[in-house]
C-alpha cells in the first residue's frame, strides 16, 4: 500500500468550529450529504440528532447490556443451583434442594450487576476509551472550549473524498467561526 501525501505530512483532518448546537447539526448534515463519511462532531453536551447526522446508525450498547444481563441471570441462578444441589446439599426442613423461589433475589441482583457493568464497560470499549492521546486536542480552541461552549465538526484526512483545499472551502461555506487544520 502506498503512503499518501497526508500520511507523510501528518494531517489528521480539518475542523470547523460552531457556536450553537443547531449549526453543528446542520453542518454535519450537509457534510454527510456532500459525501463525507469519515468525520466526527464534538459537543460539550449530548445534542439530539448529531450522531445521526454524521451517519451513526446502530447503537450496540443495548445489545451488550442484554447479553450481560442474561449472563448474570443464568450465571447467578446456576451458581445458586450448583451450590444447593451439587456442592453443598443441605436439607432445610425437608424442602427440596433446588428450592428455586429462594434463589430469585440473588439471581436478580446478579442480573442487574452484570448488566450494569457491561453497559459501562461496553460503552467505554466501543468508544475506545480510555484514550490518552487524540489528535483533535492539538487544536487550541478545541482543547480549551470543546468541553465547555463550542461545537466542532472534523472531517478526517482518511476520508476518500478529502482534499485539503476543497474540503476547507466546503467547511468555510458552512459559516463556521473558524476552520483549523488538525495535526496528527
Amino acid at each position: 500500500m502506498t503512503e499518501t501525501f497526508w500520511d507523510r505530512h501528518g494531517l489528521y483532518g480539518l475542523m470547523a468550529q460552531f457556536e450553537t448546537p443547531e449549526q453543528v447539526v446542520s453542518a454535519a448534515q450537509r457534510a454527510y450529504d456532500a459525501g463525507y463519511r469519515k468525520m466526527d462532531a464534538y459537543s460539550p453536551m449530548p445534542v439530539e440528532g448529531l450522531a445521526e447526522a454524521i451517519g451513526f446508525k446502530r447503537n450496540w450498547v443495548s445489545l451488550v447490556v442484554l447479553i450481560g444481563g442474561l449472563t448474570g441471570c443464568v450465571g447467578g441462578f446456576g451458581l445458586l443451583w450448583w451450590i444447593c444441589v451439587i456442592a453443598y446439599p443441605h436439607n432445610v426442613g425437608g424442602r427440596p434442594f433446588d428450592s428455586w423461589p429462594a434463589f430469585i433475589p440473588i439471581t436478580f441482583e446478579c442480573t442487574v450487576l452484570l448488566a450494569a457493568l457491561s453497559s459501562v464497560v461496553g460503552m467505554l470499549a466501543m468508544n475506545k476509551l480510555p484514550m490518552p492521546y487524540h489528535p483533535v486536542f492539538n487544536v487550541t480552541e478545541f482543547a480549551q472550549r470543546a468541553s465547555i461552549d463550542r461545537f466542532f465538526l472534523c472531517i478526517e484526512a482518511n476520508d476518500p473524498k478529502f482534499d485539503r483545499d476543497k474540503t476547507k472551502a466546503f467547511l468555510l461555506e458552512l459559516n463556521p467561526e473558524e476552520v483549523s487544520e488538525v495535526d496528527k
Binding site: 464534538y42 451513526f56 450498547v61 448488566a115 460503552m123 476509551l129 480510555p130 484514550m131 487524540h134
Partner: peptide, 22 residues
C-alpha cells in the same frame, strides 16, 4: 480522554439510560 464525540455521546446516553433503568 473524553472528547465529546457525537458517536460517544450516543453510546453514552444509551448506557446511562439503561443504567437508570437497571
Amino acid at each position: 480522554g473524553w472528547r465529546g464525540s457525537a458517536r460517544h455521546w450516543a453510546r453514552y446516553q444509551m448506557a446511562y439510560l439503561l443504567l437508570g433503568g437497571l
